[in-house]
Each structure stands twice: as C-alpha cells, then as structure tokens.
Design a protein around this nucleic acid. Structure first.
Lengths: 235, 235
DNA sequence: GTAAGATTCTACTCAACAGTAACTTATGGT
DNA sequence: ACCATAAGTTACTGTTGAGTAGAATCTTAC
C-alpha cells in the first residue's frame, strides 16, 4: 500500500526474483496485493484462483497465506489501496481555496486518474457480497464517505453559485458513475494517458452536451491548476 | 423476454404455484430468467447457485435445466433481456426527427429507465469472463453496437451544432458510465421512480455543473416529449 | 558454524456446486 | 380408458478450489 519502494511499479514478481530472500516484508506483501488486483481485473474475482495469483508471482499458494489471511482479505486490501487516493483528493479539496466548482474540478481530475489505475477494477466492479459482513461494511463506509464528500463540494458550489444542478444527490451519482465507468474501458498504454482522460472528463462534466452560449465567457480562472500529483519514483 | 403475459410482473414463482402443470412454456422460461436476474443482482453470479434460483421458484435444479442449457446461458439470457430495450431506443432514435441533441435526450431517458430495471445488474455488473468465448463475444458486440449508436447521435448533434463536446468518444463513455452506474444504487420502490431519475440525468448530462449563462435561453423546444413507454399490463 | 527464526514448499482435506442419469407423475389427444 | 409425451423429481458424479499441516530451506545474529 505504501507506494514508496522502487521496483514495485513494473513487475511485482521482481520482488522475489533475483533478490535475496529475507527481503522487506512490506514490499512483498504489496506485490501480492498488486498482482491480485491485476488478476482480478483480467479474469474477475471468482475466476481467479489463489494458485493463479501465486503462479503470476512465481511462488506457491501457501506463500500467499503467509502474507494475507485469506482470499477475502486480499480483495479487501485491493479495495483499500484503490480507494485511498480518492479519499486523499477529497481531504485536500476540503481545505483548498477557490470556489466549489474549482475544488470539485480538482477532485474529478484526481478521481479519474485513480480509477484508471490498476486498482480501478477492485473499486468499481468487485462485489460487496464477496466480502463478509464485517469487511463489506467497512468498504461501504469508505465509499459512502467519498459520496458525501462529493455532495458536500457540490453544495459549496451551489452556495457560491459556481455550480447549478437541480439535485446534488443525483448529480453526485452521475459524476461518480461517469468516472467509475472508466475502469471498464480504460487500459493503460493505449492512445490516451490517464491525464488526458481526466481532463476530458473534467471538461464534459462541467459543461455537458449543450453548446455554451456565445459571449459571457465562463470564469475558468484557475483552469486546472496542474498540480501533477507527485509521481512515485519509477524504476 | 416477451413481456406480454400477465402475472409475470410481480412474483415469478406464480408461474408455477396454483396453476396446472401443462402451462405455457415461454412464460415459465421467462420466469426462470427473471428470477435468475434478481438473484444475481442480490448475491452476484458466483454466489448464486442454481439450487438457490430453483428454490426461489419453488422447483428443483433439474427443472431449470429443462428451460435453459446451463448457467452460462442463463446469464446470457439476462444480458439479452436487459440490453434489448436500449437497442430499441437507439433504433427509434435513428429514424426520429429533431436535432441530434433532441434525439439523444430521448435515448438517455430510455436508457436510464432500462438500467433501473431488474436486468440492470446483468447489463452492467456481470463479467464477460463468466460467459464463454462464444457468448461473451456476442454480448460485447451488442454493447459495442450501443456505444456506436450513442457516438453517432453525438456526431449528428455536433454537425447540426445542437451539441458541443470536444471528444465524442469520451463523451459517449461518460454518458454511458453515468447511466450504467444507476444499476449500482437504484432500488425500485424507494423515493424516486425510474422516470424521475431519468429526467434528472437528462438534465444533468445536458448542462453539466456550470450555471447556464443568463439570457440566451437554450432551445428546449421539444422538452422531453413524454412518450411514456408502453407499460406492460400489470396484473 | 550454528541456533533461532523467518520464509516457502509438498501434499494433503474438505465442501460446494454444476451438471446428469434414470425414474415418476400429470395431461391432453384419440 | 390409454398411451405418448411434457414436466419434474431424487439421488447421484466429478471437479474445482479454498484453506492447512508439517516438513524443508534459507538468513541473520552470535
């Protein structure tokens, strides 16, 4: 989860191969989770056996149990890893300056980038029923926290009249839906970068389909304040 | 699939209970598919055994095999049943009058209503990997047909300048995403009707977050031409 | 070098569930 | 009345895959 160590960006199996064995426990655990996320994304949770994941890592099944309690918890960790960046974006927005719309714009951007990550599937497509009552409730709580955050930003924007929507609740669902869906179609390394997608979505969600009325340029003062989220050291 | 016979609206098990046995084959088959869709929605595909579905219908497992070939095909039928209304909406839009935006508005509305149906889950959350290569490809083809339809409407709208988006492809994804997500949160019989949701989404997707510039009222000539889709005879 | 502990492996158990075989019962046409 | 067939049942098989016990192997500290 701590995306800090090098060499976890490309091939997770590298955490084993070549290196000496008594290797940083955390790094390997992250590799397990990361590989699981990728496998779930490709084949779905139930069509992925722990043997599959083990094989992808070049180890055997019991090794996985050395790092996580069971398959359920593995899925849970994927959720957490994916959800965290979005929660961080919302926390940042809470104490940022600017109109509601400016701040929401930032969140939408970071949200889109997060969903296009390798954990996108887990956040969006994984079924809560696959987690027991306990963990399922935790995930639901986190998701609902995100939902409330977006609604709050919408409300701010409505109050300072930088945003106009009829129903903030449904608007939040529409925004989250458009963004979450990215996980269904986006594949890394095809034509579009995560940032390009994010910018396009910011654009669309702000203005919708209708042409903007000529004249009365809308206040794009801060544009997208390109705070390129600190990229983790690659390689 | 043929939503024509009475008594399939409420409880599908009613197709068996009380009635004599030599009963309309098609009706019962529909009841099987409908019940499967509901169960998949509630517990997910893999957490639903055929015994579960059989129990919900008040029959035993082999009876299900009497109506469908296997579990995979059962899921496939749910896909078809759900996707069809959306394809129909697109077909209607193809030969409708009005601007691209007017026609897209109709499609968005009907799409939203369809996704809020009991087949919403199958269309949106079911994994293609759970269908074999054959059926999976068919579903993918249908979905891509829908995607192309939306893009075409967007392009019409751009041409007649009733729509302004930078990238029609991404706009189509955003629209589909917002709509598809409805399947994740909408539950029938809570506060909002399908139509209310649909209208709110039409509204939001047309105008986005930004307040409309005062003056220059936008051309809402046809509004939502409330062609209340023919409701099937209920009970 | 060697003991202690950390890490990974081989070789299982056990339950769930899709799918089937073969038998039973109701129904409608003749 | 009777039989051909539609509709359903009970009771199984076979496989898959999560999870575990316990042995084997590596690493580091001393």
């Amino acid at each position: 989860m701590a995306d800090s160590t090098p060499a976890n960006t490309a091939d997770p199996a590298a955490a084993w191969r070549g290196r000496r064995r008594r290797q940083d426990h955390g790094t390997k655990r992250d590799a397990v989770i990361r590989t699981a996320a990728k496998a779930f994304d490709e084949r779905g949770y139930h069509n992925t056996s722990l043997d599959d994941i083990a094989a992808a890592l070049g180890v055997t099944k019991p090794t996985i149990y050395y790092y996580v309690a069971n398959k359920e918890q593995l899925l849970f960790e994927c959720f957490l890893a994916g959800l965290e960046p979005i929660r961080a974006a919302l926390r940042r927005a809470e104490q940022a300056p600017g109109s509601g719309r400016d701040r929401l714009r930032e969140v939408i951007h970071d949200y889109a980038v997060a969903i296009a990550s390798e954990y996108g599937w887990c956040m969006v497509r994984a079924e809560h029923q696959d987690l027991g009552a306990e963990l399922g409730a935790q995930v639901r709580a986190l998701k609902s926290e995100i939902d409330r955050g977006i609604r709050r930003l919408l409300q701010h924007g409505i109050n300072d009249s930088s945003i106009a929507v009829t129903d903030p609740k449904l608007a939040a669902f529409a925004i989250a839906g458009a963004l979450n869906w990215i996980a269904h179609w986006y594949r890394a390394g095809r034509t579009l970068t995560q940032d390009e997608v994010a910018d396009a979505f910011v654009q669309f969600l702000e203005h919708g389909l209708a042409p903007r009325q000529p004249g009365a340029g809308n206040p794009v003062r801060a544009s997208v304040r390109v705070r390129r989220t600190r990229v983790v050291a690659k390689a």
